[in-house]
Write a protein that binds this DNA or RNA. Sequence first.
DNA 1: TTGTTATGTTCATATCGAGAACAAAACCTT
DNA 2: AAGGTTTTGTTCTCGATATGAACATAACAA
Lengths: 385, 385
Amino acid sequence: MPQTMTSADLRVRNQVRLLRAVHDAAAPFTRAEAARLLGIGRNTAAALVGELEQARLLHEVPAESSGRGRPTTLLVPHPEGPLAFAVDFREDTWTLASVALGGAITELESGEHDRTPAVFARIRAAIARHEDERLAVVGFATSGPIRDGHRLHISHLGWDEVELGTLIGADWPTTVIDNDARLAGLAESRRGALRGMGTAMHFHIDFDIGGTLLLAGDAQRGGHNIAGEFGHMPLTGSGLTCMCGVRGCWSLDVGANALVRRFGEQPGYGTGRELAREILRRAEDGDPEAGAALDENAAALGRGLGALANALDPEAISLSGLGVDLIRLRRSLIEASCAEFLMAFRRDEPPRIVPGTVGDAGPLTGAAEIAWDAILTPEWVKSRQ
Amino acid sequence: MPQTMTSADLRVRNQVRLLRAVHDAAAPFTRAEAARLLGIGRNTAAALVGELEQARLLHEVPAESSGRGRPTTLLVPHPEGPLAFAVDFREDTWTLASVALGGAITELESGEHDRTPAVFARIRAAIARHEDERLAVVGFATSGPIRDGHRLHISHLGWDEVELGTLIGADWPTTVIDNDARLAGLAESRRGALRGMGTAMHFHIDFDIGGTLLLAGDAQRGGHNIAGEFGHMPLTGSGLTCMCGVRGCWSLDVGANALVRRFGEQPGYGTGRELAREILRRAEDGDPEAGAALDENAAALGRGLGALANALDPEAISLSGLGVDLIRLRRSLIEASCAEFLMAFRRDEPPRIVPGTVGDAGPLTGAAEIAWDAILTPEWVKSRQ
DNA sequence: TTGTTATGTTCATATCGAGAACAAAACCTT
DNA sequence: AAGGTTTTGTTCTCGATATGAACATAACAA
């Protein structure tokens, strides 16, 4: 029973609701609109906003008049307010950005790395270079599952069950972490193609395919925080054995690895991505063999999406990475293959399959979301008064 | 923004929290315990309980003393309080029960039916026979997906997109409806083997297999209210075409249909269930061919559960129907097959596969849960004051 | 018999949001 | 240019909530 309520907490709770509304909104809104949105009186809204301005969380700027009525103010993040830092930690690069309330992202720094855990110390140093008293929380996106929230497993870096506590230590600011595929999905759900949907899915296609189930704007994590390995279900009837230890994974037929394997190349994480780009280019230029490889990839993608739609009934499915190219080049094939594996009675209302709109910034954007989620709480807001 | 909050709503909200706690509790608790549970003072608890007693929602009975301290009272449903009716509508029978706050079920009536929609009128009549002013809401469990919440599709009755409004009309009490597999899962999640879990799954195995994903005690419904057709994912590599219109469904290899098909019988909904029981009996008696059929069923079950666990990471999976027998007779085979299709790094912590404890009463119990869910709201509680 | 413990009860208090009335600042009409 | 309209901001009173402290009560234990 977390939601204990005294009449004093009521105020904090409404402050959080207001901050959440400002953060989630696509565009700034006025104080009067805020009152209507939250279902509170204008007087109460004035009081809330005043206190949040005192706490340097919100700021009021004159709104350009729109029609009749007394001029009002727009609610915007306070110029001296708290900031979240977001880190996107990738295969060989990292990016650090600052994110204000509302989601505006400012890139601060980026770098390459040598694939050893030492990179975490360098990222910590980069944070320190930009850190000031405005920094409130860090959101961190990494690839690989993070078991039970603290045991990191990145196969293509050879990191096996690395203890997160040794990488992100007590000298770090408050930090929340999740994996990139899940965060990319969260970003689409909060600020992209899946906005406002109750049930949706997102898949990131790179070397293989991973994804997340998005319910009411939240990414599902599972019982051990390792949900989302949709690529490791045997959905396409492959006879091969996957790196994960299972036979027949969907990932064996979808993604860059599947593309290059068709050309006799060993799938892997070095040159594989470039070769996949090359195959994509050749397919666009009309090369029949490259085109056939793309066809197979698209058909396998659609088949898996259809199967998953039967089980989970998403309103829409967004794709990122290679998936964006596959939609661009093979949309009808994906949809046909999806429909073929959709239960007959669902075919008149198939899930929409759309490219993500957050794009490459998905993990970073998602990291910013979980960072702000961590502090947009009654406890934190109360502590700032 | 549904959760508008005035200090007057606060009281109603706490009343609902208290009622919810009483409803969800495994055993009655005292007023003092309620105060601790909700994090409120004893004086506030006294006020809440007093008002709920006035509203004929709660009743206080002397609690047998346990050690020192002033004697207190247990909070129990009011003897003249509201009741939910629950209906379990099956292939050829139906059951009507009355369910008090807290979940105690009293069976009222049951009957057979002729598989035509006319049975709904007879169920309505049965409700009318037992209805009095205490009846607040009806929860209804049916088989088959209910698209968008109002278009019912029961293939084995030959009902295709039947409009629910024509079956459950304006002369019915307030009625909420969902399908049996989902409600059986909800029952396990609220009152059975999956109690208290954040992420879990339940599968009901009858002719085929259907299930539901349970998150924090709620069954997922999907974007069009037709989530849960896990049986129609191609998880086992079958080459057959399923009744649903798709090739290779998991359901082709798991359940009574799969059992009888192995003996050259046509799967169907008439004698199929009896034949499956017969096969089960023979397997128990040591018949090698029946045993082999059971083996195949169990292996296919495990394979699918492993695949789904990769994607959704449940803490536990409960089974009902034939699944209970499969666990009883072939537990190790199911677990081995599940492990084989579990990603290697997950095998040291596989999902627990357990028989449901609500058993045959799952759909009825789940129907009662959604019925009470529908009224344990601030609006309804306020309307009773 | 007396002390201990847990719970029930009473009362004063701070705070919250609602609602009404009024003020202010724009736009629109004539 | 003047007056009316519309929307928002501001001020004040009011009823309601949960709290916390103090006290009362009813069991058990020594």
